[in-house]
Amino acid sequence: MIYFQLFWSFFKIGLFTFGGGYAMLPMLQKELVCRGWTTDDELMDYYAIGQVTPGIIAINVSTFVGYKIKGIVGALCTMVGIVMPSIIIISLLATGLTYVWDNSVVQHAFKGIRLVIPALLLPIIIKMLKKSLVDLGAVCILILAFIANFCFGLSPILIVLGAGCLGVLFSRFKRKKV
């Protein structure tokens, strides 16, 4: 039963995620954190790891959650769940339903959805910032990551690796002082 729940949750997430890994965060939070399957902190860690490991972030995060809850079979359930809507929809499109997509009504609907996603993300970001900014060192990492990504367009992979190193460095420094 839990396997079907896992599959169904991720099927819904796959179906209502428009625009890749980060856009599925509000759905993940609602489906997983509210059920007590993971915590906000764990979700953030999964994203960080998903960013630097091979594979697509959305798939990596799904696999993480599935494996954590129900081992390898759980991971398979979440994976099949998140991939299934894509396979169904893209198959329909490829077999001649493209005219539906060129339809202006559908395009307007997508435009409308793009305005909703940022509004859904904002409360989650605020919560994440509150939780992650535990001291001055964390604030420093945040500012550096912002400059690296926004001003220099550095790849997220390098930013995650750099932030991890800085985390170790700052923690060492803190412990020496104490």
Partner: peptide, 24 residues
């Protein structure tokens, strides 16, 4: 060490999601 790595990763992930929001 694992704990301090995640201590560093969390603010960075929050910022990247923030930038994604602005881009969107």
């Amino acid at each position: 060490i694992i704990k301090s790595i995640f201590y560093g990763l969390r603010p960075a992930v929050a910022v990247m999601i923030c930038i994604f929001l602005v881009a969107l």
